[in-house]
């Protein structure tokens, strides 16, 4: 599935969060959206999945405007993994992942549905958790379950909002490897909003850096993660080297005190 974003703009009341964003996502590609707090990363993801309706511009999926695709059908194409997840009522892990099958289920759960869920749980290594209650799990475990739920939608595009913020190093690597692997083995393209520049650098094919709701730079991690860009967007002096994995590695040094605006938290 090819995803094209044209001239997307969104404002919360009168505060502009996204301005004229243009982006393309290719097949089997992992695209990271990076940028400081309040630069519009989460807003962008929500606009793509129609959780928020853009004021201007369009999201085109294989040439079709997402606004014209029914919510049900869209749910079979795009899976969304939010930053944090709560549930008002207690559900087991199996139940939560089962909800990812909602776009396909009329009422009963079919054999195939169960098969898919069991496979995904196994794939993510959380089969043992199937009968546990979601609200009792650790942050890392919950994150895997949410990813599992999104995968149960059998999407072709996966949107992840800060998928690794609650995870320890091991889980971070595990989850990102799995996701990267999925793009290679299945028809899956991924957009992830990332805080951690180094993780983003390592696991993405393409990167887009946002500043104040606008695309500041787009391209391979090598081309986007430059000291000049980081200074301009984050207001931080840094040192960028080439890591052992042949990807740019960012070492932040010090914030630049004067002459740079501080971006506020706005979501």
């Amino acid at each position: 599935m090819k995803l094209v974003i044209n001239g997307l703009s969104f404002s919360y009341n009168s505060i502009a969060a996204l301005k004229d964003v243009e982006l393309e996502l290719g097949l089997n590609e992992v695209l990271s959206i990076v940028g400081p707090n309040g630069s519009g990363k989460t807003t962008l993801l929500k606009c793509i999945d129609r959780i928020l309706k853009p004021n201007q511009g369009a999201v085109l999926i294989d040439g079709r405007d997402a606004a014209n695709i029914g919510l049900d059908e869209l749910a079979k194409i795009i899976g969304y993994v939010p930053q944090s997840s709560t549930s008002t009522f207690p559900y087991t892990v199996f139940d939560v992942v089962l909800m990812g099958r909602k776009p396909y289920i009329r009422w009963s759960v079919s054999e195939r549905d169960k098969e898919i869920i069991a496979e995904i749980l196994k794939f993510l290594g959380i089969s043992e958790l199937a009968a546990r209650y979601f609200n009792e799990l650790s942050g890392g475990e919950q994150q895997k379950v949410i990813v599992a739920r999104a995968l149960a939608q059998q999407p072709q595009i996966l949107l992840l909002d800060e998928p690794t913020s609650n995870l320890d190093i091991k889980h971070q690597l595990e989850v990102l490897s799995i996701i990267k692997g999925l793009t290679q083995s299945r028809q899956l393209s991924v957009i992830m909003a990332m805080h951690d520049l180094n993780l983003a650098s390592r696991f993405s094919d393409k990167m887009a850096m946002l500043k104040h709701g606008c695309i500041f730079a787009v391209g391979t991690p090598k081309s986007v993660l430059t000291e000049e860009n980081i200074e301009s967007v984050y207001g931080v002096k840094s040192h960028v080297t080439n890591s052992v994995l042949d990807r740019p590695q960012v070492t932040p040094i010090a914030p630049i005190a004067t002459g740079v605006e501080n971006s506020e938290e706005s979501k």
């Binding site: 959780i51 869209l74 749910a75 939010p82 997840s85 549930s87 289920i105």
Partner: peptide, 21 residues
């Protein structure tokens, strides 16, 4: 609407992403 209610307990945003208005 049982399924819708199940999904809605995950929050409005997740519900929309799963196709529930």
């Amino acid at each position: 609407h049982s399924w819708d209610m199940n999904v809605m307990s995950l929050g409005e945003e997740v519900a929309i992403s799963l196709g529930v208005n």
